[in-house]
Design a protein around this nucleic acid. Structure first.
Lengths: 174, 174
DNA sequence: CTTGGTGCAAACAATTTGCAAGCGC
DNA sequence: GCGCTTGCAAATTGTTTGCACCAAG
């Protein structure tokens, strides 16, 4: 996969935003932090901390898990990355800059995650937040179900025990 | 707290349902399984596996954590209990029989969980499931924000580090 | 130079698993 | 009695922490 110029623009923008955030908060600008942010934005979709760690290792970056977790948290607080819990005890992350706010459908069989947008969610947030006197900052709407291909698999009696996608399969390898 | 006759009815119903489910699946009807289901339905609201385990211990029931987890999973599959992940790496459960389907608002400061209903969610499920060819079985809509009382606390500069509620505080004690 | 950030490994917390003993069928 | 379930403890998994060293400001 080649980095397109459009991607390059986005990466420059998020690096600038991150830099400003670090400065404002008085945090140091370390190469590790920028490297992690860059790798996240070079790739797409949903990943977990371990996959990112392995990916950095494969790229011959010297980063520790601790730094990955630390940086992910920083990126979440400055809203460049979103953190999700899709029902498993495994936090999933995704880049969020320049993305329209969206929600997720998760296939309970294969673990596939599909994004969707629906304006109705915002209405519910406003109405309900107002009614219960909560200042809503964010939300998560996850729909769980079985995708088309998996329904066929299941009809044939094929059952997957561990709907886990490995690094290679998820497109994070070289 | 005294067990009301209405509660008693519900408990009888869920025990019957659970019994039928165990039978259908060829699982054994052990006293532990019934005891756990009963304790869940005697109490209300959201709890985690450890709190339930401690609660059973306090009640002088001999159950192991393994059995608690095992039984919770059984109860989730037969839809007598719902499992949630409210952003922490800690599964929360709630009884679900006889409850209208609902969603949650979570206070990010104190951890309070409020339930709400909104018909709009069903529309979204139908529409989106149809569009992406997913057979949606369930969903989770969580709104995160700060509740009224906590907004006042925060204005005064009071910050809570660990919005965790203990067994006693959550009303599971004796 | 000061001190926050890092890598590493050990610590933790939630959950799962292996195994011998027990009890439902 | 057979073998699923249990209790217990040890193992796993995901994440956090302690500490000595390094490098950003």
């Amino acid at each position: 996969m080649v980095t397109t110029s459009r991607e390059h623009d986005v990466i420059q923008q998020v690096l600038t935003i991150f830099s400003a955030h670090l400065e404002k908060k008085g945090f140091r600008k370390t190469p590790e932090r920028y490297a992690i942010l860059e790798e996240i934005y070079k790739r797409s979709d949903h990943f977990d901390a371990e996959a990112l760690y392995i990916h950095m290792k494969n790229r011959n970056y010297r980063v520790s898990r601790a730094t990955v977790y630390n940086t992910l948290e920083l990126l979440v607080t400055c809203e460049l990355v979103k953190k999700h819990q899709f029902g498993k005890n495994l936090a999933q992350y995704e880049k969020s800059y320049g993305y329209k706010q969206h929600d997720h459908i998760i296939c309970t069989n294969c673990g596939q995650v599909v994004e969707f947008c629906h304006h109705g969610v915002q209405q519910i947030k406003d109405l309900v937040g107002d009614y219960y006197d909560f200042q809503i900052s964010h939300h998560a709407l996850n729909l769980y179900g079985v995708c088309g291909p998996c329904r066929k698999e299941l009809e044939l009696g094929i059952v997957r025990k561990h709907p886990k996608v490995t690094e290679e399969e998820s497109g994070w390898g070289e």
